[in-house]
């Protein structure tokens, strides 16, 4: 009756709402946790002590050098055809503008193809991307390499429509990447509303002029840490089931959904197992990653350090797509392992969430999955996720403690049973 006991404790018992309450305390105390910030440093310190206080084993920090970028003051003002102060959020790793800002005419494009076609018009201008939202992975390319593509055709800055299917005038930040052989230009996200408005203005032949000011600065890499805590296995302690989320966030909102929820249901999994007095056969290892938002920096460091033991990893799990009402478990692995995961998910029939879907993945576990380790991620109701993601709206208010309880129950049952089976999950 172990699965039933986990569900009972997480959803109906004493532990209900615990992961939500713990997350509330952290995000209200520390706020958002940008890579390289004092906030992230404080969050790591608090979490380290909390995991120790929770009587977890082998609690330790693993050093990682992470990027340190600060946005500073920023503004984008439309000067022509009318005065309009636009909401703007600089993109991670962007350079700043000169203190007087960059004032330039705008070229609005709807795609990279259109930018290439209209390349001769782009020189000296601010390129505004008004790309439609298709899905996250496709549309995010504009945010990631919008500045590089604009700079290639001589633009002086780029403003990118926020990557979201819905907006109430909310800019959404995220990481962008420069290319070595292309000049670096400042780049930021604007709202869907402003991108669409400028697109309409441009289609009417109206000249648009914007003054963009960004105080963004890149500093040398700084020290940070992945946090590790365990329940050591009783029979095969050297073998590992890894359960994880990332502790860093962007510097807006509270970083509650991305990825406070994932980090805290992962902690909750170990807490619930500890509360029930269980000890699986192999080690259940919690990792709270640092600097995921900058491109999985902490996860890369962890992989480099631990890949020598890759044959001992039965399953790697990451929750980084919200902890709203779960729809199932995404899984990548061999057919045999998938059949086993389906059996395990049947244990969740009391919650009526038993689906095993394809494409288990996560920025922080992908290296392991690519190397052949079975991987799982939590799939939940994503309807709201990208409305709030990377914006000032990413706060605890969006979250629901009852949904988090269910997410934690699933996360715990899966991680515990895989850790306690007599054999590791079979690989291809």
């Amino acid at each position: 009756d172990i699965a039933k006991a986990i569900i009972e404790l997480a959803v109906y018992g004493k532990a209900q709402n615990r992961s939500y309450d713990r997350l509330a305390l952290l995000v209200d105390t520390v706020g958002p946790r940008l890579s390289g910030s004092k906030n992230l440093e404080m969050a790591i310190r608090i979490m380290y002590q909390s995991l120790k206080d929770n009587d977890l084993e082998n609690v330790h920090l693993e050093l990682v050098k992470i990027p340190h970028w600060e946005r500073g003051e920023e503004s984008a003002v439309m000067l022509k055809p009318r005065f309009h102060e636009m909401a703007v959020l600089g993109l991670g790793s962007s350079i700043g503008t000169p203190s007087e800002g960059i004032t330039a005419e705008v070229l609005v494009v709807n795609s990279f193809d259109e930018l290439r076609r209209r390349a001769p018009e782009a020189k000296g201008k601010i390129v505004v991307y008004n790309q439609p939202y298709l899905n996250y992975s496709r549309t995010v390319q504009y945010r990631f390499r919008g500045a590089v593509e604009a700079a290639k055709v001589g633009a002086v800055a780029s403003l990118i429509r926020s990557v979201t299917p819905f907006s109430i005038y909310s800019p959404h930040t995220g990481i962008q990447k420069y290319q070595d052989d292309v000049p670096k230009i400042p780049t930021a996200c604007i709202t869907v509303e402003d991108a669409e408005m400028m697109s309409r203005m441009a289609s009417r032949g109206v000249k648009i002029v914007i003054r963009l000011k960004m105080g963004a600065r890149n500093y040398p890499d700084t020290d940070s840490f992945n946090i590790v805590a365990e329940i050591t296995g009783r029979k095969y302690p050297e073998q590992v089931v890894l359960v994880s989320g990332h502790l860093d966030s962007w510097d807006v909102g509270q970083g509650a959904i991305d990825d406070g929820g994932g980090a805290f249901i992962s902690w909750e999994a170990l807490s619930l197992i500890r509360d029930l007095g269980l000890r699986p056969k192999r080690t259940l290892r919690l990792v709270l990653w640092t600097a995921e938002e900058q491109g999985g920096i902490g996860a890369f460091q962890y992989y480099e350090l631990h890949k020598v033991n890759i044959s001992n990893y039965s399953l790697v799990m990451e929750s980084d797509a919200g902890t709203f009402l779960p729809t199932g478990l995404q899984f990548t692995g061999s057919d045999k392992a998938r059949a086993i995961m389906k059996e395990i998910m049947n244990l969740l029939q009391p919650l009526n969430i038993t689906q095993v879907l394809n494409h288990g993945e996560g920025e922080d576990i992908n290296l392991w999955i690519q190397a052949g380790v079975p991987g799982a991620s939590l799939l939940d109701n994503l309807y709201k996720y990208f409305f709030f993601h990377h914006s000032h709206g990413d706060t605890l208010t969006v979250m629901d403690p009852k949904q988090m309880n269910i997410a934690a129950a699933i996360w715990t049952v899966v991680s515990y049973v895989v850790a306690d089976l007599e054999e590791m999950l079979p690989r291809s």
Partner: peptide, 24 residues
Amino acid sequence: QATYKNATCQKTFQKIQKEIASYG
């Protein structure tokens, strides 16, 4: 020990099924 090094599942799926059912 059931390490991945052997790469193959020593138990039949039916046995694993039964083992998993014992958690339910």
